[in-house]
Design a protein around this nucleic acid. Structure first.
Length: 572
RNA sequence: CGGGGCGUAGCGCAGCCUGGUUAGCGCGCCUGCCUUGGGAGCAGGAGGCCGCAGGUUCGAAUCCUGCCGCCCCGACCA
């Protein structure tokens, strides 16, 4: 394509609305434009990058045995009523009524539709397993869209759904998808980790998130520095340290006055102890009923772990406010402790390794010191309820853990039979018995992947596209469009590369060289060829790689084949 | 939804506090000259319902009220 004919509205300045780097660069490089909050138009370059990712996704899905179809975006409310999600899904589901008064919605995901399709058309184990996917624009009325393509309301997603007859087969499918995802993100040239994710209240057996490692990621993930272990915070475990051989002597429980000392920091400072020698008592409202949670002073609650321990939905769990705390315990917050508490109490595992610790006395302005579990109070439910820290060790190998940020670009999920049961989607097995399909679902945020790639690959001058997902592989800069000799050389190279199947952009604009260099860097095309002065003087062209700025000087006849060679090798 | 911030030319901003002629600046855009290896220079030019609607005032971009939009922080997710 010729630059002069493409819509590439680059910007010299950064629009103030863009906070993260991918958003800024996508805007500046003329890849996207915002229409409305969380809704973007994809301009030619942006679309080209998206298509590249789509193509990789498509190839790997098909390679893994999935087949592509395309499902409707507008979906009848009835189906969602049937699955029970019309009520459950919440305001993220954009609902509307059509002219006949039928309730409808824009598809944020397609479990209902695909399950309906399969239940109507697949009836025998002989037709299984079945793995279907689509690449489509999704709409989720996000509470807060942000970061450009990273979290839009409208976004392009690959969603796949599998149907198996047996657990073994379903697990095999899951593994195949796990591998396919691995290949996809590797091919996209991204640094990523597959992390274990929480399966939530749906109760599926396993789930992995594919996270691109980037500082601007919205999620914190835990990775082992030593082995392959990786998990998100909701799921991350740790290796329990060995119990000390000898239990220290239990000291006498003592009530001390701690006037006005409510926060962990204030209490520990006042008592002259560390936060590791104090147990804090937090009150949560679970389904609007109060529960107390015991944690070591310096630890933080992991709400999903807590929700799972309580058997409630994460959405229905929140920290109690001061009034609720007082109503539930009769004690103002800040002086709570497990001794004599009338509401259900859960404790984090860590407290079983603590002795002679401080706790609230359930009395205003008082705490206990030298409290001990078992002697002074009992807790029925003791389990892992906290955020993992970098002080913890890997649950798999015992190595050091590190917390890093990631962008979730893919999520695979073994669903089991929750949807097939709800929608009565069944088949006959080889014994003639009716069984619900065992399902899995597999998502990839395609537009988000492009944003994530940019987060991971850029410098002060702009984007540095990985070759597999770049909108163009080569950009030729005609530095003197008015010079016939130079223009002819640029065109010749352009034609040659195109005939070799190379995706090439020819900057034929009547602009000064400086602007062309800047735009080429900004757009991030991996290889740049300069045709200018050195061609008219010495008959030489320069190839420059965007990533490292290295240049090679070659003749016109050498340049084309050299580029073809480099690109073919890099993509092999 | 809770908290914070912002709406002035395509983009980035000043002006607003302390109302007063024709609303500025940089970039971009158009024309001409000139220039051509890292966003040149000169000259000329186009482009604004100052987010919208009310109100106060002789007079509102500026003060007041309401609404709308956008961005950031939290809970959600590909």
């Amino acid at each position: 394509m010729r630059f002069s004919q493409l819509l590439i509205p680059t910007l010299k300045e950064t629009p103030s609305e863009a906070e993260v780097i991918s958003h800024q660069l996508l805007l500046r490089a003329g890849f996207i434009r915002k229409l409305s909050s969380g809704i973007y138009s994809y301009l030619p370059l942006g679309l080209a990058a998206i298509r590249k990712v789509e193509q990789i996704v498509r190839q790997e899905m098909v390679r893994a045995g999935a087949q592509e179809l395309l499902l409707p975006m507008v979906q009848p409310g009835d189906l969602w009523q049937e699955s029970g999600r019309w009520e459950k899904y919440g305001p993220e589901l954009l609902r509307f009524t059509d002219r006949h008064g039928r309730e409808s919605c824009l598809g944020p995901t397609h479990e209902e539709v695909i399950t309906d399709l399969v239940r109507m058309n697949v009836h025998s184990y002989r037709d299984l397993p079945l793995n279907l996917f689509q690449i489509q624009t999704k709409f989720r009325d996000e509470i807060r869209p942000r970061f450009g393509l990273m979290r839009g309301r409208e976004f392009i997603m690959k969603d796949g759904y599998s149907f198996d007859a047996t657990e073994e087969s379903a697990d095999k499918t899951y593994m195949a998808m796990h591998q396919a995802y691995h290949r996809i993100f590797t091919r996209c040239g991204l640094a990523f980790r597959a992390v274990e994710a929480d399966t939530g209240t749906i109760g599926g057996s396993f789930s992995h998130e594919f996270m691109v490692l980037a500082d601007t990621g919205e999620d914190t993930i835990v990775i082992c520095k030593n082995c392959e272990y990786a998990a998100n915070m909701e799921k991350a475990g740790y290796r329990e340290p060995a119990k000390p051989d000898t239990v220290p002597a239990l000291k006498e429980l003592t009530k001390v006055e701690t006037p006005g000392k409510r926060k962990v920091e204030a209490v520990t400072e006042f008592l002259g102890i560390s936060a590791k020698e104090l147990i804090k008592t937090m009150i949560f409202m679970a389904d609007e009923k109060p529960v107390a949670v015991l944690l070591r002073g310096d630890h933080e609650v992991q709400s999903v772990k807590l929700a799972n321990a309580l058997g409630v939905n994460d959405d229905n769990l929140r920290l109690a406010d001061d009034k609720e705390v007082f109503d539930a315990t009769g004690v103002p917050s800040g002086y709570l402790g497990p001794i004599g508490l009338k509401i259900p109490v859960l404790a984090d595992l860590e407290i079983t390794r603590m002795y002679n610790f401080a706790i609230g006395a359930n009395e205003k302005n008082h705490h206990f010191t030298n409290a001990n579990l078992g002697r002074d109070f009992e807790v029925k439910t003791i389990t892992d309820l906290r955020m993992v820290t970098e002080e913890d060790n890997c649950p798999k190998c015992g190595g050091a853990l590190s917390l890093t940020k990631g962008i979730e670009v893919g999520h695979i999920f073994k669903l089991g039979t929750s949807y097939s049961k709800a929608l009565k989607a069944t088949f006959l097995d080889n014994q003639g018995e009716e069984r619900p399909f065992i399902m899995g679902c597999y998502g990839i945020g395609v537009s988000r992947t492009v944003a994530a790639a940019i987060e991971q690959n850029h410098d002060k001058d702009g984007i540095i596209f990985p070759l597999p997902i770049t909108p163009f592989q080569v950009i030729i800069l005609n530095l003197s469009p008015k010079d016939e000799e130079i223009s002819a050389a640029a065109s010749k190279l352009y034609d040659y590369l195109r005939s070799e199947g190379i995706e090439v952009l020819l900057d034929d604009r009547d602009e000064r060289p400086g602007s062309k260099f800047k735009d080429a860097d900004l757009i991030g095309i991996p290889y740049r060829v300069m045709v200018g002065k050195s061609f008219s003087n010495e008959g030489m062209l320069e190839i420059r790689t965007r990533a490292d700025g290295k240049t090679t000087t070659l003749t016109l006849d050498e340049t084309g084949p050299e580029l073809v060679k480099i690109i073919k090798e890099a993509l092999a």
